[in-house]
Write a protein that binds this DNA or RNA. Structure first.
Lengths: 239, 239
DNA sequence: ACATATTTCTGCGTTTTCGCAGAAAAGTAT
DNA sequence: ATACTTTTCTGCGAAAACGCAGAAATATGT
């Protein structure tokens, strides 16, 4: 094992202001800092695999991950993209195995809290548990909204949605027009619930409309407002 | 107002063993019994409407409800079917307004707990809050699984899924082959994310295969195992 | 810079799904 | 039972989406 070393970051010194762990009492933050497991995962590696047993939950300290679930034919579906401060593995919490897997999209640092530590922290920190519950509530809302959109949208609209979702997830701080370098056509298709061919077609179309700019793998959104507008009839309050 | 009267049922005497309120301490169960609002909603009436402000959460004491969300064109999508002991309105909890509405499918009795009462109960009863969080986790899992299935299934498969889902939701105790009397073709379509025409076609097909029996509105499942099998490649562990 | 591997693009025929409209069936009221 | 309303069924043409396959473009390694 030749993993890059990094001293375990104390939660109280962590830059992620929105990390749920911050909801705990100072004493508990210290305890978690001590007991948590800070892990580095290289780009392309699994953080945890689909159907693997649930030992705890991961908090992303730094990096980007895709949450995927695959069917028998090997087709992958991207369920969610997660970045700094987000949680991973919470879908499985309470169940036996992870219903989805998580793959590092670049080099990722995560903090792992095992089930026992989590349960103790929940029990001792109302605010922590409450905020996690609220997060679940939000995620459920989004998940169902998305399912509804997808049931009604055309392929073109779903691809536009996927592009907006990617920028939103991976460039939350203003730089929304950044190139979406890391994602292949197939991965965009896995988000938009279609196939790579169809994504290509839509991208070509959007290029002619000058809504996006494409240089090979690098896509950037040229007309953010226009794209939002073109699917606004569904997503009025989503983005 | 000429509503059927019923003395407020004390939670400790309520037959729903699985009601989340039972997770509270005896003192809190008594307090909730006293402060909760027991309401009757007639068949076809809204329990709460989409986009209405969130005042609290509803616990179904008795009856069946459909949770719906509609788009601009007026198309309805059925997000979930709920029965005895289930919660309603939790999707909106933490947000401003209900992202979905709930309609009584027969005469329904619900217990309403307002935000303040709920928050106090959460704060004072770890088990209660924890079990609700676990419920959200489960719901999120199901929601995303379902979204994935729907993205891959054909119309026929989605209708089969819908029929199984309906029996599962509304006849949890063994009597799985009960007729699904209450749902119209349009409602089945709203679950399967298609239209009434398509549902008709699939029903006709399933009839010839002798997997279902149809007498007008009344549908009953003749070959439960066969139907499960025909979509098992997706739903291995769902039903 | 060159060769090779991988990814993306696009034309075309096929399949799936949709939506309309009229017929048939079922439900409802008098 | 009869008349009327509502729901369901089904045939058909149109639209959307798919999948394959070869071409084009891009990325990768030496």
């Amino acid at each position: 094992m030749n993993r890059p070393k990094r001293v375990t970051t104390q939660c109280c010194e962590c830059k992620n202001a929105s990390c749920f762990i911050k909801q705990c009492s100072p004493e508990y933050i210290a305890l978690i800092s001590e007991k948590k497991n800070q892990i580095r995962i290289n780009r392309g590696q699994y953080i945890f695999r689909e159907n693997s047993p649930v030992f705890g939950i991961y908090f992303i300290q730094e990096g980007r991950a895709k949450v995927v679930s695959s069917n028998i034919d090997g087709k992958e579906q991207i369920v969610r993209l997660a970045g700094d401060g987000h949680i991973l593995g919470h879908r499985g919490y309470g169940g036996e195995t992870h219903p989805v897997g998580a793959v590092a999209q670049n080099d990722v640092w995560v903090c792992f809290l095992d089930n026992t530590l989590l349960y103790e922290a929940f029990k001792a920190n109302f605010e922590f548990l409450y905020s996690i519950m609220m997060f679940y509530s939000q995620e459920l809302r989004k998940s169902e909204q998305r399912a509804q959109y997808f049931a009604q949208m055309t392929v073109e609209e779903r691809v536009i949605f996927a592009l907006l979702y990617i920028t939103e997830s991976y460039a939350p701080e203003k730089q929304v027009d950044l190139p979406l370098i890391t994602l292949s056509r197939q991965e965009i298709a896995d988000i938009a619930a279609t196939n790579a061919d169809q994504v290509s077609r839509v991208l070509t179309f959007l290029k002619t409309k000058e809504m996006i700019r494409v240089q090979g793998k690098k896509i950037s959104i040229a007309d953010h407002e226009g794209m939002k507008k073109s699917i606004a009839r569904y997503t009025a309050a989503y983005f």
